[in-house]
């Protein structure tokens, strides 16, 4: 279970996320959609610890992790597939997997037992590219590698930031199928997606972020039944005025 409760975060003195609250059940997919600059990636980065939470709570299986350093949050069972993949350009695929499956990444409580063999079985394309460096892979292969790297950390919660960005339609469909399968296996998935249609197809719940606030959060069935409000929120005409900025409270705690 991933619980985000009244989470505020930002950069420098400015707030980007304004009291964002979400609850993602185990084995379900929560999609977060929104325009560019709405705070989607900031939300993912804050949950992963890469951006400091100024207030609010992030709970992984009931354990409060907001404010911890990224490596501590990763050890708590959070896997990140970042926007742009961010694979290590000079490391080979085999080295990525070797590093990601390191002994310090013991299975987290409730996490799946992902091994290199199981990961390669799921993502067979990587098996034939083991000796290739990250910078030599195609966009789709890099995305597979980023997912494999995250899975080998034995996550209970998987954060996916625009995993289909820049991929061909068939590759994007394969990635969506993969994410669906992972959730069906019990993984908690928070999916940031630009394409509303894909988000609605894949997710169990869909939330819309606008200027760092959750302005819509409903089950996918409701979004499918009545997509008009959702589409209206994401249309250019429906831009709400931005909320007033406020200084960041000093609540960053470096919990060891």
């Amino acid at each position: 279970m991933l619980t985000v409760d009244r989470l505020c975060a930002g950069y420098g003195g400015g707030i980007v996320l304004h009291e964002v609250s979400l609850r993602v059940r185990p084995g379900s997919i929560q999609a977060v959609v929104g325009r560019n600059g709405a705070g989607k990636s900031t939300l993912v980065h804050t949950i992963a610890g890469l951006v400091r939470a100024s207030s609010g709570r992030v709970e992984i299986g009931g354990v409060h992790v907001a404010g911890r350093q990224p490596h501590r949050i990763a050890q708590s069972g959070v896997g990140l597939v970042p926007q742009g993949r961010r694979v290590f350009s000079r490391l080979t695929v085999a080295e990525h997997l070797h590093l990601a499956a390191a002994p310090w990444r013991a299975p987290t409580s409730g996490g799946e037992g992902w091994t290199v063999a199981r990961t390669l079985e799921l993502l067979p394309r990587l098996a034939v590219r083991l000796r290739h460096r990250g910078c030599e892979l195609s966009g789709g292969e890099q995305q597979m590698l980023a997912i494999a790297r995250a899975l080998l950390g034995q996550p209970r919660v998987l954060l996916l930031d625009e995993p289909c960005e820049g991929l061909s339609p068939d590759l994007a469909a394969r990635v969506r199928e993969l994410v669906n399968g992972l959730a069906a296996d019990g993984l908690t998935v928070l999916l940031v997606e630009q394409q509303l249609q894909h988000a609605v197809e894949l997710a169990d719940r869909v939330a819309v972020l606008e200027y760092g606030r959750v302005v819509y959060d409903r089950p996918d069935a409701e979004a499918r039944r009545d997509p008009a409000p959702l589409a209206a929120m994401l249309s250019v005409a429906a831009v709400a005025p931005p909320p007033a900025n406020r200084p960041t409270p000093r609540l960053w705690a470096d919990t060891p």
């Binding site: 992963a48 610890g49 890469l50 350093q69 990224p70 490596h71 990763a74 050890q75 990140l80 970042p82 961010r86 290590f88 350009s89 000079r90 490391l91 590093l99 990601a100 390191a102 310090w104 990444r105 790297r149 950390g153």
Partner: peptide, 17 residues
């Protein structure tokens, strides 16, 4: 080598900077 490339992602692998 990974840390030279992207230290943030190394931290996301669970390794303390």
């Amino acid at each position: 080598r990974a840390a030279v490339d992207d230290p943030e992602m190394v931290a996301c692998l669970g390794v303390s900077p």
